[in-house]
């Protein structure tokens, strides 16, 4: 009896396009764990999955849209957020989740991120931050720590990285949290909260890229996870301005922001059609 319930079917298989497994992520890559946390959060959130859509940009994390068995869109580099904005405003009944990487969301797509947060479009944005461009082989990103070695910063990164929670908060996000993929339970919980949050919510999930980043910075994937374990400072409610990622001082994790604000659509409807808050016409 108990043995027959064990099978080659994983409990998350119902949310995965199993005909596309194995996925492209390398051994030791953290995207899969963030993705797995995301799927568990989706399931536990109790939202209507038929009305849920996942939008990704380009890059390793951007491939997540291709593995989730829901309506899912793999769009252009950096443009997942405006694509998702169009979906949400055209059909506000949909739960719209953006799952993408740091390069996609914060370099090429940085402008879209800050404006979607400013407008408080009701989206959930999950950013897998692996500090590099993984898909193209490990180039410097807007999140690469100073002095870190990448293929385009062979002697060390001369630039400073973004503090993503601070950027999200300053831009107007109503929910901001950061976890690492090692803190998978907290991460799952945060993603669940973010999905259920009405407003622009942002989760940064730190994850190793052993092939692109780890190799050049002398970090095996397990070492990266141990750094996450040792250097983690869990500080819910911390000031995002102080959440710079500094592996020497420690990395501040937790839920930083959780506030209420009317969404873009709430405000639009109240100003432009105060008498009826009917949904958008189904023109098609």
């Amino acid at each position: 009896m108990k043995n027959s319930s064990l099978s080659n079917k994983h409990p998350l298989d119902e949310l995965i396009r199993t005909d596309r497994i194995p996925h492209i992520w390398c051994p030791g890559c953290g995207v899969g764990t963030v993705f797995s946390s995301f799927l568990i959060a989706l399931r536990e959130s109790g939202i209507d999955l038929k009305n849920t859509v996942v939008v990704s940009g380009i890059g390793c994390s951007g491939r997540a849209a291709g593995y989730v068995k829901l309506d899912s869109f793999h769009t252009t580099h950096g443009r997942a957020i405006p694509f998702a904005t169009g979906i949400k405003l055209a059909n506000p009944d949909l739960n719209v989740i953006v799952f993408s990487g740091d390069g996609d969301l914060f370099a090429i797509g940085g402008n879209h991120f800050i404006h979607a947060a400013r407008r408080n479009v009701d989206l959930t944005v999950i950013c897998v931050n692996n500090f590099t461009y993984g898909m193209t082989g490990g180039q410097a990103a807007a999140t690469t720590p100073s002095m870190a070695k990448t293929t385009t910063t062979p002697k060390g990164n001369s630039e400073s990285p973004f503090n993503l929670p601070h950027l999200a908060y300053a831009s107007g996000a109503t929910y901001v949290a950061r976890w690492t993929m090692l803190h998978a339970r907290d991460l799952t919980e945060a993603i669940k909260e973010a999905i259920l949050k009405r407003g622009f919510s942002f989760i940064e999930a730190l994850a190793p890229c052993p092939t692109g980043y780890g190799r050049r910075n002398k970090e095996q994937p397990l070492q990266t996870l141990k750094i996450y374990q040792e250097k983690a400072i869990i500080k819910n409610g911390a000031n995002p301005a102080e959440a710079d990622i500094d592996f020497n001082k420690g990395i501040i994790l937790g839920k930083f922001i959780d506030i209420k604000k009317p969404t873009w659509l709430d405000t639009y409807n109240s100003i432009y059609r105060p008498q009826d808050n009917s949904d958008i016409i189904d023109a098609a």
Binding site: K2, H10, C29, V31, G32
Partner: peptide, 17 residues
Amino acid sequence: YCEIICPEFAIYSIEDI
């Protein structure tokens, strides 16, 4: 925990009632 941290959906546990 193994189930959630596994990036490959390759391990899970069920309760042994």
